Computed example of a mutant assay.
Amino acid sequence: MTVVDQSYDLAESKLAKRSGWRLRPEIWLPFLLPVLMLVIWEVGSHIGLVSTRILPRPSTVLAKAWTMTLSGELFLHLGVSALRAFAGLAIGGLLGFALGLSNGLSQRSALLTDTTVQMIRNIPILALIPLVIIWFGVGETARLFLVAISVFFPIYINTFHGVRNVDPQLIEMGRAYGMSQRSLFLRVIFPGALPTIFVGLRYALGLMWFVLVVAETLAASAGLGYMAMQAREFMQLDVVVLSILLYALLGKLADMITRALETRALAWNPAYARQ
């Protein structure tokens, strides 16, 4: 075989591998049902099964999105909402993670604070809005507070239970090998709690977008929630549906990033090992 033939076979092999990677079922299969629903929705609108007065066509929503993209309005609302969401996630998530670790590692800390946290957790977030307005007004602080408190509880609970549910035999084995408390935490307890912590993070991301919709109705001047409220006032159904779809896409994107981090951080776990 000549050098040219070998080079051609090598290039063909690489192309096949790349094509195979792109066509793996785990990549395209999760998007099959949403795309199919959009196609049915579009076809139903064209043949009259779905009234455009009730629900605009996906093509109409896409055209509106393109128009708002060209004007820069869409990126403005997206950027403001994303900044609010992830700022609230950072504040509430870090506090929930820290308290979850504290209560998981210390029985005394759990006895002191866990009952109070559980009592506050059962108060509906929306019931706090009148108090939040009185405390913080209707500015950015109020919106950040609502998002932060919504993500605090799922991250706290899953961190707390993740630390508490680490196999005690592994902890005893680490102590038998002479591990220090710091080494025991970093090598045994924290890795063992990570799967549960990531579950809490994924659940918190869903709540984050849900509460953000409500938070952006508090006299906001930008953001996807504000965009939807303004569109409702002027009966712009295409903009309302667009804002809903954008929330869904942002939630999916955040979940995909979290799952990628989860897979990388838990590569040592057989349940998360790459094929």
Score class of each variant (00 low, 15 high):
residue 141 T to D: 00
residue 59 S to V: 10
residue 31 F to N: 13
residue 158 N to C: 04
residue 133 I to S: 08
residue 118 Q to K: 01
residue 41 W to K: 13
residue 58 P to W: 07
residue 87 A to M: 11
residue 89 L to F: 15
residue 110 A to H: 02
residue 130 P to D: 03
residue 151 V to Q: 05
residue 155 I to R: 00
residue 139 G to D: 13
residue 80 V to K: 06
residue 44 G to I: 12
residue 160 F to A: 02
residue 112 L to E: 12
residue 31 F to H: 14
residue 115 T to R: 15
residue 64 K to M: 11
residue 72 G to E: 09
residue 96 G to I: 07
residue 144 L to D: 07
residue 36 L to A: 13
residue 132 V to S: 08
residue 51 S to E: 15
residue 110 A to Y: 03
residue 155 I to C: 08
residue 35 V to P: 14
residue 115 T to G: 06
residue 113 T to V: 11
residue 29 L to I: 07
residue 163 V to L: 01
residue 50 V to G: 07
residue 166 V to S: 05
residue 40 I to C: 13
residue 52 T to M: 01
residue 89 L to K: 11
residue 93 G to N: 08
residue 98 A to T: 06
residue 139 G to V: 00
residue 161 H to Q: 04
residue 160 F to N: 08
residue 156 Y to V: 14
residue 165 N to A: 13
residue 129 I to T: 13
residue 67 T to K: 05
residue 142 A to V: 00
residue 162 G to E: 08
residue 52 T to G: 12
residue 101 L to C: 14
residue 32 L to D: 11
residue 79 G to T: 15
residue 102 S to Y: 00
residue 36 L to H: 01
residue 36 L to I: 03
residue 101 L to G: 02
residue 68 M to P: 11
residue 98 A to L: 08
residue 114 D to P: 02
residue 133 I to T: 06
residue 165 N to E: 09
residue 89 L to Y: 14
residue 139 G to W: 04
residue 88 G to M: 03
residue 97 F to V: 02
residue 109 S to R: 05
residue 56 P to R: 01
residue 93 G to I: 01
residue 138 V to M: 07
residue 143 R to M: 10
residue 131 L to Q: 10
residue 144 L to A: 10
residue 125 I to K: 00
residue 82 A to M: 14
residue 80 V to C: 00
residue 29 L to H: 04
residue 61 V to I: 09
residue 161 H to L: 11
residue 141 T to K: 01
residue 102 S to W: 01
residue 73 E to T: 14
residue 111 L to A: 04
residue 33 L to C: 05
residue 166 V to K: 00
residue 153 F to L: 07
residue 83 L to N: 15
residue 163 V to G: 03
